[in-house]
Amino acid sequence: MIAYILRRLINIVPVVLIGLTITFFFIHLAPGDPTLRLMDPSVSPEVRQQVIERFGLDQALHIQYYNWLRNVLLDFDFGNSFKYGHPASAVVLDALPATLLLTGTAILLGLLLGTVSGIVSAVYQGRLPDRLINLILLFFYSMPVFWLGMMALGLFSIKLDLLPASQLSSIYYTDLSPLAKIMDVAKHLILPVTTLGLASAAGFGRFIRASIIKELNSDYIMAARARGLSERKIVLSYAARNGLIPLISLIGLTIPVMFGGAVVIEVIFSLPGMGRTMVEAVLGRDYPVILSASSWAFISVVIGNLLADIGYSLADPRVRINT
């Protein structure tokens, strides 16, 4: 098992490198001149030339790639952001916590709501509670996250003025006591996290319902009933337990989706996270930031999948990991 984990961890390196290499060439071959977006068009050609030389943009592509790769591998140095001037890794690292906080809490909320509603729905299959839950889940499932976010923002922040509309904390944040700081961030997170959490709860809930119903209809459940097991035990420790196993791999697959959701949510609620940084970097052709952000995104997603695979093999004895 440990050998397996180590092997998978080592495997992350080529995966991320291949991903980054593709991204590197994709970026550099894509139309659009970074210097044009970077600077005022009125800047003289000489100054522009200086900038190009400083970033090495005039060299042949393979040399640029070689230099870039060497820096990344040796120093984890992605170069300086075109826009901010300081190291791209720092720009991205600054944005990472907000995104992790947002997606982490949203996944937890989604899992909680999704599991409860999925189990209830499956147990009451076809009856009123199931129909009601189904309808609600279907509604949220079919909704673009960003639209839900916009509507929530318009209603609760702008119209009713109940919750803050943007940023992760208030301007007077630094003056607050530790407890008040937490409350402040929590208040800022309510809308974005609920939006993202509801969207993922809908997916989880529908998945769990179907999965548990499938289990409830299988022969071993009938056999367990024949042995006189209580319905409670059959639902909770047989059907729900087995039906939740596939959820583990779904969580692994959901992580990148959540990053996607985080992009639009961060843009709508002006949160200082990776998603917004990425959108700005793409629009501004800020190569170092794009590559640095991508690498973090790749790493966290691959680790998420690894954890999902390990979890799956722990939960289901039929799936054995061959080391």
Partner: peptide
């Protein structure tokens, strides 16, 4: 799958 999808789609679309 290591590419968070919307992220990469964004990159791909944004750069083309």
């Amino acid at each position: 799958l290591g590419f968070p999808r919307l992220f990469v789609i964004l990159l791909a679309v944004g750069l083309s």
